[in-house]
Simulated assay, not measured.
Amino acid sequence: MSRYRGRFAPTPSGPLHFGSLVAALASFLDARHAGGEWRLRIEDIDPPRCPAGAADAIQRQLEAFGLHWDGPVLWQHDRDDAYQAALERLIDQGLAYPCSCSRKQWRDYPIYPGWCREGVREPGKPVAWRLRSDLGLRPVTWEDRLFGHQCFDPATLGDVVLRRKDGLWAYQLAVVVDDADQGITDVVRGLDLLDNTPWQRQLQHALGYPEPRYLHLPLIVGENGQKLSKQNLAPALPTDDEAVRPLLHAALTALDQAPPAGLASAPVVEQLAQAVAAWSVARLQPHRERPLAAPT
């Protein structure tokens, strides 16, 4: 893991928005500043959430902002065998178990109570596969590159689902297997995923995978104070150059990189060249609120 390799891994549930741009841009700049690679992975393991054409639109948006990736795109819909092999290894270690319980049944509990740990509670019903968070690596600690020392007991977070009752793979297992297979050394992503990291570190430890470094980013929020997201109807990123230039400058500003004001209308390639050379994680202010700063 001596050479830097980062990645951007969007779910194609719709086009990218300004919050997505900030996350992708930070990951890209971190990789390019380190002289490393930057990969693109399309996390399309949930087909009902992925409308036709969304993945193509995402790639066009990235290209419009000059965020060109290295190597072929990795598609999660092609990865069933790899995920199954990892799940079987966890089952063999006693770290994964089938669960027939529904969310409605344990709605009065803050986390899933582990009712099926010693055997399926309702045999004959469809089952999900869960991680035994009480048996794996505990506690989980790591040094986040922005938020510093982190320490979690995954058992207090619950037994996360690895494969759903409908047979679809869940995010936690897929992301860990893909990061390992792609040789990802550094993960740069939003702060909303920080508390997913303990499960992922448990899985990495159980599967014998390298542990990437993590940099979690402050979130971009809308006027209502909520995270900017597709669910909150955040506007899609444009692809026409005239609109892209000021948005790229706004994203660099949101990342506390203080891009020169004179570059706000400069070509994308010029803005990125300056940003790559000047990129500094030390400039990021972890606790500053970031209301949507994109020009309208």
Rank of each mutant, 00 (worst) to 15 (best):
G190Q: 02
D181S: 15
L203R: 05
A174T: 10
L193V: 07
H205F: 06
Y171G: 10
K165L: 00
T197F: 04
R164N: 03
G208P: 15
R201N: 08
R189C: 02
V187S: 07
Y209L: 12
G190E: 04
L162A: 03
L194E: 06
P198S: 07
D159V: 14
G190W: 01
Q182L: 12
A170D: 06
V176M: 02
P198G: 04
R164L: 00
Q200V: 09
T185I: 04
T185F: 07
V160L: 05
F152R: 14
P198M: 05
Q172N: 14
G190K: 03
G158W: 05
A174V: 10
D192Q: 00
P198Y: 06
T185A: 10
D181T: 08
K165Y: 01
Q150N: 13
H205M: 12
P154E: 02
I184D: 13
D192N: 03
Y171C: 11
A206E: 04
L173R: 11
Y209G: 11
N196C: 15
D178V: 07
D195P: 07
L157T: 11
A155D: 06
T185H: 13
D179N: 15
T197W: 02
F152Q: 09
Y209H: 11
H205R: 09
C151G: 13
G183I: 12
R189D: 02
G183N: 11
T197P: 01
V188H: 01
W199R: 13
G167I: 03
W169I: 09
G148Q: 13
V177M: 07
Q204C: 12
H149M: 08
K165W: 02
D195W: 12
A174I: 05
T156V: 05
V175I: 09
P210L: 08
R164P: 02
R163M: 09
D181M: 15
Q150L: 05
V160Q: 04
T197S: 08
D195F: 08
Q172S: 08
G167Y: 01
D179F: 15
D153C: 09
D159S: 11
G167Q: 05
F152D: 13
G190L: 00
L157K: 13
G158R: 08
L207Q: 10
Q172W: 03
D153I: 04
V175M: 06
D192E: 10
H205Y: 10
D192V: 00
C151T: 12
V187I: 13
A174C: 15
D186N: 14
A180M: 13
V177S: 04
D186T: 10
R164C: 00
Q200S: 09
Q150R: 15
L207W: 04
L207N: 04
E211H: 15
P198C: 07
G183T: 05
A155E: 11
H149P: 15
V176K: 08
A174D: 06
